[in-house]
């Protein structure tokens, strides 16, 4: 079995090829190893972090799910925040992505920069700034404040995802719909939206994960009831019980599930077109 494309085979022969192969294998191990370790340790029977564990049990999952109610409360809060973030982010991202891809106005470069900026500026600065801002308006500790912070972090990537779909959408399809008698709202609902769907769904899932996995904004804006990440953060900094490992494992599998979902959506939309 040969993994390499024919035109590159001479390049990956010899010691240089060995170096490349070694890097790739190490990288995969390096990227996956911590995830595997966390999964294993989440089934530990020990009372403290120890690898390899001396025995296996579900006790830390039990603790997460029913032992200590603060974990489920935090999970529920994260879930609610992430769902809200995903919905609002997508609603904001659709028109913005269409404008970004299609309009030819002056100063578009600067508008793009504004949209990219939350990715480049440290989330710590965005979080502190927003904390101060909404404190001034008396919104600290509210769900709205937390979600606003998460949307700021999620929006650039969501816009990018929708924009990729929007770029592939031929404007003539919308002209065609309109010439066939569809009113603007019908064009949007029957043509634009279905064709943007893969990008929109990916944007929504990624926005969900961005919110669910955020630590820094939650640090300042989650208020008295922490989000799951804030709860884990407190635990890690203070006592480190393997409950964090069971929470982490659940998060890992949530991410994998989201990825599978996105892959399925892409697969089915490719089949259709």
């Amino acid at each position: 079995m040969n993994f390499t494309q024919p035109q590159y085979r001479s390049l990956v022969r010899g010691p240089f090829g060995w170096l490349l192969n070694a890097c790739l294998v190490l990288a995969v191990v390096f990227l996956l190893c911590p995830i595997v370790i966390v999964t294993i340790i989440s089934f530990s029977a020990d009372a403290y972090l120890r690898f390899p564990p001396s025995g296996y049990s579900f006790r830390w999952y039990e603790n997460f799910l029913s032992g200590d109610p603060s974990w489920m409360a935090a999970s529920n809060k994260s879930f609610a925040a992430a769902t809200l973030t995903a919905v609002v982010t997508v609603v904001l991202a659709i028109p913005t992505a269409l404008a970004l891809v299609r309009s030819r106005i002056r100063g578009k470069g600067w508008l793009e920069l504004v949209m990219l900026a939350p990715l480049l500026i440290s989330p710590m600065i965005s979080a502190i700034a927003l904390y101060g801002w909404i404190a001034a308006f008396g919104f600290v500790g509210t769900m709205a404040g937390l979600v606003a912070g998460h949307i700021v972090l999620a929006l650039p990537y969501a816009i990018l995802n929708v924009a990729i779909s929007a770029k592939a959408l031929d404007p003539r399809l919308e002209q065609a719909a309109s010439s066939l008698g569809a009113r603007n709202s019908q064009v949007f609902r029957r043509v634009t939206l279905p064709l943007l769907a893969p990008g929109i769904i990916a944007a929504g899932f990624f926005a969900f994960l961005t919110s669910f996995d955020d630590v820094i904004v939650s640090l300042f804006l989650s208020g008295r009831e922490p989000t799951l990440q804030k709860r884990m953060w407190d635990e890690i900094r203070l006592e480190i019980s393997p409950t964090v490992a069971s929470a982490s494992t659940l998060l890992i599998f949530l991410t994998i599930a989201v990825f599978l979902a996105i892959a399925l959506v892409r697969r089915s939309s490719e089949k259709a077109s």
Binding site: D170, R172, L173, Q175, A176, A177, S178, S179, L180, G181, A182, R183, N184, Q186, V187, V191, P194, L195, S269, A272, S273
Partner: peptide, 20 residues
């Protein structure tokens, strides 16, 4: 009038069939 109210049938160069 907007295109949708003109009652005109149009065949596009690349056909513009709805892929979905």
């Amino acid at each position: 009038l907007p295109s949708s109210e003109r009652n005109i049938g149009m065949v596009f160069q690349n056909y513009a069939l709805f892929p979905h």
